[in-house]
Computed example of a mutant assay.
Amino acid sequence: MIPRLALVPGEPAGIGPELCVRLAQAPRSDCTLAVFADPAALRAAADALALPLRVLAPGASVERPGDIVVHPIANDAPVTFGQADPRNARAVIEALHTAAQHCLDGTFDGLVTGPVHKATINAGGIPYSGTTELLAQQAGCDVVMMLANATVRVALATTHLPLRDVAHAITQESLERTLRILHRAMRRDFGLQHPRIAVLGLNPHAGEGGHLGREEIETIAPVVDALRDEGMALTGPLPADTAFLPAKLRDVDAVLAMYHDQGLPVLKFSGFEDAVNLTLGLPYPRVAVDHGTALDLAGRGIADPSSLFAAVDTCARLSRMRVTA
């Protein structure tokens, strides 16, 4: 089975288009790729990098390095690398929605997404908190964000929230839902029949027996205990400052962090270049790069494409896993 992947470059003034051009220089045998973007932005990126690019219509076959299949979605304003334009916010969101809809209807088997510029999308009049949330709303399902590299997989109980709102957002119901999605995804997408999941506490030292907060006692531990009684291999709540020690990670398949900056700095320090962002719980695999638009690097030919290559590799592997499961 050769997975059919949809690819959205993201912000056209950032490094997304040139990363797609670099990807096109190495035709793949493990998947087919179709890009949802403005062909003009891709051609401009190819010119800036002095790399060959031949834009092919949907359904065409890639024959040589530089070939790229494109579902055209025109930008509303000319693109200048390094200068994000709110007028192009519509095209960015349309590309995401269109590619995702093709995954929902079975035309494609998985979705790979490049970096978007949140402030520019909101400045364009489109309320936007993140692609994870956008795809979940479109599909009508609950999802979990997980970032992964060769060292560790870190899922998040909450995503893009101010720190002062995190404690109130973590409830027994939300935590149980998150752990069930994570457990199911580790079985279905990663082929782990008995995934071992470490659950972090919210407070320093996991609350220090209630002296530094009672969320571990009143919210996290009851959920962990109940799901462990059902047969899930869960440990926790664990102090976050020691949970990522190599000796601890050897016995863990995934870590559930309570908030964004509790787990992701460790993951990015351990291997930022090959890290990817996964949305668990969608009807299709979605994998994103783990970096921003890098407007200051756009069009200069120096952006590292490693994360995009890793995202495509991961999405192809997950797509095959779902079809053969």
Rank of each mutant, 00 (worst) to 15 (best):
Q83C: 01
L282M: 08
Y128E: 02
A157T: 06
G271T: 09
M146D: 06
F272K: 04
Q25D: 02
P246D: 08
A139K: 00
L282Q: 07
L56E: 11
N277C: 08
R300D: 02
D85M: 00
D142N: 10
P72T: 03
L182A: 07
L280Q: 10
H97S: 05
H183Q: 13
V224A: 08
F108D: 07
L49N: 10
V21R: 02
R187I: 14
D67N: 07
V276Q: 02
V154Q: 04
R164Q: 13
V8I: 15
E215D: 12
A303T: 11
G10D: 07
T178V: 15
L49G: 10
S319L: 05
L56F: 10
V312Y: 02
G130H: 09
D253Y: 10
L295C: 04
R64H: 11
E215F: 00
E94P: 01
D47K: 14
Y128W: 12
R322N: 11
A100V: 02
A44M: 14
N203D: 08
I2R: 15
P3N: 07
M321F: 00
L33H: 07
G213V: 03
R300Q: 15
A48G: 08
D38Q: 13
P115R: 03
S129D: 05
P162N: 13
A13T: 13
L104Y: 00
G16I: 04
H160D: 12
S61N: 12
L227Y: 05
G191K: 05
D296L: 03
N203K: 08
A226F: 04
L56V: 11
E94T: 14
R286N: 11
L282G: 03
G124K: 01
P9L: 11
L245S: 06
L249Q: 04
P204F: 04
E230I: 05
P27S: 12
Q193Y: 04
A41V: 15
I2W: 01
A37N: 09
Y259K: 04
V79G: 05
T131W: 01
L282T: 08
A254M: 11
D67T: 05
V323K: 14
L96N: 02
A37D: 15
M145D: 11
D76L: 12
T314C: 14
L182T: 05
D225M: 03
R320L: 10
L134E: 13
G10Q: 06
F81S: 02
D165Q: 14
P9M: 11
P78N: 00
A316Q: 02
H211Y: 13
T314Q: 14
V276K: 01
A77S: 09
L19E: 07
A221E: 15
N88W: 01
A91E: 03
L104T: 00
Q83K: 04
A136M: 02
T242D: 04
T80V: 12
A169W: 06
H102W: 03
